[in-house]
Design a protein around this nucleic acid. Structure first.
Lengths: 194, 194
DNA sequence: TCTATACCTGAACGCTTGTTCATGTGAACT
DNA sequence: AGTTCACATGAACAAGCGTTCAGGTATAGA
């Protein structure tokens, strides 16, 4: 392992790119800024990544992998569907608070189509996970009857909006609030009006 | 009113810009494409709008006004808070299905900060509207006890995510599904486990 | 018809950005 | 010390885009 290995440089570029892309979006992030943040020359970036797009996609893939591992793990150990969903939501929220980079998966870089397959896969897998939880919850009588697939889509859509609001607009949301909202909805079932 | 009035040209530019910005986002939309779609010269666009940013902001303002008028109207005539919210959600969904342009208000052009005051105002006003509905619903016993302000934020965040999913990813969501989701949440209150 | 003015055009300009490539350097090996 | 090769540099290039501006035209009024 020689001293001037490219491995370190690659890592630096990835870290810098993650920061710049997360903060500025794909369009406004420029390779010069990433290179500078990485302490690498502009031409040096191209020793490791064919182009800007490939760099971005590389980050997406990393992020997706990290995220997927975490969510499966957490949900695997829950005692009930409601708890599983709670943990899922909590994990996602906390991750969003600590890792701005998550928004790369949630955000839709308007006007750019590459990476859509990755993002779609991320959403599909997350949706399936939630669907599974919902289906289990219905079977156990914990969740009301509904179309698990469609409902999972709504949960994912909501989560996306909320994660984006947190990451981009500094909205404050606690896991408990979110949990209450998703699990309980708005109607007052105590009254049992319907 | 002379024949070669600038009024028509201005309208054409606005219509074309709305289409291009909605479809491509701010970064990828270019003045040349807008000019061509409007049937106006590139330099002609600058007779009416000082620059690209001003054009975009002009669209935001129009869209915000249109949207606000519609929502106030609909909610004003509802018989109950639950109905008001249902109508609000329905209107928003249907509008999103028919008018892609709505996403200009919902989307966060990552990396661009102008227009944020407009978008924030839009969100604040919508949130207040929803908060009012929720507060009324709680008072009437229709909605469960919760913090109306925080919950309104969650409703808005969710709606944003869902609208974006519809507009950008062609997710299918019916007003009824959304309504059920927001009003009922997931828990099975029939069981009254808690 | 002439004049003034509002509307209009599109080539040119200047800037930015992604990318390339000629050149250089450090490290390891002989 | 000389050689090789992986890593690295940054000026230069080309393309794209926002914007400008010299020049043109249509319209209305005198």
């Amino acid at each position: 392992m020689n001293k001037r290995s490219g491995i370190e440089s690659r890592k630096k570029i990835i870290a810098a790119a993650m920061d710049v892309f997360s903060g500025k979006g794909y369009a406004k992030a420029c390779i010069r800024e990433i290179a500078e943040a990485a302490g690498i020359s502009i031409g040096g970036v191209y020793l490791y990544f064919r182009n800007k797009e490939e760099l971005y996609l590389s980050l997406l893939k990393n992020e997706m992998h990290d995220s997927a591992v975490k969510t499966e793990e957490i949900v695997e150990h829950a005692e009930s569907p409601a708890e599983a969903l709670s943990k899922y939501l909590k994990m996602h929220l906390e991750y969003a608070l600590k890792h701005r980079e998550l928004i790369l998966l949630h955000i839709r870089e308007h006007g750019f189509v590459f990476g859509m397959d990755i993002k779609r896969r991320f959403f599909r897998e997350q949706r399936k996970l939630i669907e599974k939880i919902i289906t289990g919850g219905i079977r156990r009588g914990e969740f009301r009857r509904c179309n698990p697939r469609e409902t999972a889509k709504l949960v994912m859509g909501s989560l996306r909006g909320i994660v984006l609001s947190i990451a981009l607009d500094n909205v404050v949301v606690t896991p408990r609030m979110l949990n209450e909202f998703i699990l309980n909805g708005l109607l007052n079932k105590r009254e049992n009006r319907k």
